[in-house]
Design a protein around this nucleic acid. Sequence first.
RNA 1: GGGGGAAUGUCCCGAGCGGCAAAGGGGGCGGACUGUAAAUCCGCUGCGUAAGCUUCGUAGGUUCGAGUCCUACUUCCCCCA
Length: 309
Amino acid sequence: MSRATLEKFDAIVIAGPTASGKSAAAVVLARALNGVVINADSMQVYRDLHVLTARPTPEEEGGIPHHLFGHVDGAVNYSVGYYLKDATAAIADAWQAGKLPVIAGGTGLYFKALVEGLSDIPPVPEEVRAAVRALAETLSAEALHAHLAVRDAAGAARLNPADSPRVQRALEVVEATGKSLASFHDNRTPGPLVGKRLKKLFLDADRDLLRSRINARFEKMMAEGALDEVRALHARRLDPLLPVMRAHGVPGLIDYLEGRVSLEDAITRGQADTRRYAKRQFTWFRHQLEGWDWVKPADAVEAVLGRPA
RNA sequence: GGGGGAAUGUCCCGAGCGGCAAAGGGGGCGGACUGUAAAUCCGCUGCGUAAGCUUCGUAGGUUCGAGUCCUACUUCCCCCA
């Protein structure tokens, strides 16, 4: 069985909304197929947050090697670009060692990079980023958008003025390269999984059940020390714009630590953010990625290994 | 026992000069997405494709017209006893 599956696939990819059981399924499959688990979650990469990002515990890892979990410092502005590089290496290592990569996570954009590749865009110099950010602070969203329209009309037309992060990025790219963001989209670095034999699963959890799991999980995280994690993170005084600082629960719990809201409100906010996120994950995988098998979480393992004899 | 206040769109909170299918928010749903993606942004949320239909605790009344005014009733809250 495991030999047959190994010969059939170069990698197993498991996506799904948060709290749908991806990590557990990944471990079961990795164990059955002589595999390793590779993370595809944009927040579980951060060292600073273990409990709050639901990163697998040593027990949950079940002796299976886990890669790209907690390997990034919170002060780093990690991104798809870095992820693609790290994941490409991790996958190559697994193949090298004769192991099956079992890639699990919830970040659609990361999967897209793995499966379809990512445009080659020169890194934007820090000075340019800072300049654009400064400009964004002076101008209204509309004015910034109008400014982009002058440099990159097509790019501006594609963006809603209120969508400031994207407007800023588009602006950064033109400022740094003199070319529009879209002009780079033609040539891309192929992802490590392009052209590979894949089993791609999306864990299609029941919405109502997922909601209650999310709410309960957040309470559990609080009981397991999430607040201490955030307290330590808060003490680092990092730039609030950094990705770690936006992880579900972090903004609310920081507000609590600084005395602006009650603990109860902070928790409610963390749960709500997580619920809304889960909803967006469904939308993403429904439309942005093709060829995935939507299976119920309970059927994930069987979907790969087949029905046990 | 007396006095005062409140009941709003079949999830919740909540605004509402007599012209309102009824502000706003939450929640939910749908959607966008190429380097901050657990972020960011957009749309829908009484029924109906539409003309239109049915809503604001209940029952009456005043009015061309009532969520808005009047009467009674029901429930809840507060104060005095």
